[in-house]
Design a protein around this nucleic acid. Structure first.
Lengths: 201, 201
DNA sequence: TTTCATACTGAATATATTAGCACTGCTTTT
DNA sequence: AAAAGCAGTGCTAATATATTCAGTATGAAA
């Protein structure tokens, strides 16, 4: 979506408010009054600009014919990634097991997908086998964060420790050894940062 | 809400579908076509019946002026219960810290509220201090389930074990002893069954 | 300097939509 | 038997709403 002008943004926000409050899009006349315009054409101009820029879709000859094209306006929830096929991107369709009605903005930073946890290696961090890990996509992470990493076609959840050029992926379970990655020899592909846990009992 | 006739229900369902698909209520004409009526008045009759019965609200002289009055259409989410005041019901207003956008039906059975967990007594079950426990209200529970119980104005989360007339509330942490409740002497007030865990990392 | 996007006014028109009146016919309740 | 609710048709009026045409003015890009 191209960048919107501040006036266009105001119009867009009014439309969003309207949908939230009244459960339906506003009429052009309603926008005109709310914005304080003297002519419905002022609104039409903005609407057409918003449509050109991909923010909304206008349905011709239809009352309240404004549709928000926000990515994820009617999304089915967050994708749940189960077993990951070797050599395929994490969010490739064949890895998505299902969609779950979890609010992405419940977590901070926002969750982008859910990963079904396998194994007991993070047990002492309260992350158990079968739990759904809420993950925020990010190629970088801070020291000490729990991350989702890719190692030789294996997806793993571990705590990140970095000392100079060496990264340790530590389990939270004494039965599992830490994995050592020397950044001088190999690269570490981070798939994201763990931002939450959801478990069905 | 009074009971709807099957025809009225069909109209209501079309309206609901319409809102879900198009993100706006339908016009009377759209309903008329969808239902196969020859006259918009057939629809108007149904709409007025639906309004009388409290299923919808009609906004006069407004295009698409149909508002669903479903309970919980704009619900704020699940109540989050924090510290519980002595002698007050769990879901009394002063115990509700906030509302969180969690889908109740994500859990099974349905979650009725969230309880902020205090302490480490359920650590080995992967329930940590600060976690949000999704709880289904229930006065009874099966053996082995994790329950929310009330003991002398204290709310506690424990695993339930019952042998005859004696109930043990077991922690999942060797540092905490089990609590023994003799049903012949005292009653055990169950506030609900744990159905899930949500954690913000 | 011309063109283009933004940001509006003002008036007129076409159409979409709600709303009202007058009916028919069936079933259930009083 | 009458009244009330349900389920419709058919037509017209009123008004809500979108759309089009004709302008003005400003600042940025070509």
């Amino acid at each position: 979506m191209k960048t919107l002008t501040s006036r266009q943004l105001q119009v867009l926000e009014f439309i969003q408010d309207s949908i939230r409050v009244a459960n339906m899009p506003p009429t052009i006349a309603e926008i005109t009054v709310a914005m304080g315009f003297g002519s419905t054409n002022a609104t039409r101009g903005h609407l057409q600009a918003l449509e050109r820029k991909g923010a909304i879709e206008l349905i011709p000859n239809s009352s309240r014919g404004i549709r928000l094209v926000q990515a994820g306006a009617f999304e089915p929830g967050l994708p749940l990634v189960g077993r990951v096929a070797a050599g395929r991107p994490l969010l490739a369709e064949e890895n998505i097991e299902d969609y779950r009605p979890v609010d992405p903005s419940f977590f901070s930073p926002r969750a982008d997908y859910l990963l079904r946890v396998r194994g007991e290696s993070m047990r002492d961090a309260g992350i158990l086998d079968g739990d759904l890990l809420a993950v925020h996509r990010s190629p970088t992470a801070d020291n000490g964060q729990i991350v989702v990493a890719r190692l030789q076609d294996e997806v793993t959840v571990k705590r990140l420790r970095r000392t100079g050029q060496v990264v340790y992926l530590e389990a939270e379970n004494p039965d599992f050894p830490a994995i050592e990655v020397d950044l001088k020899q190999e690269t570490l592909a981070l798939e994201g940062i763990a931002v939450g846990v959801v478990r069905n009992l």
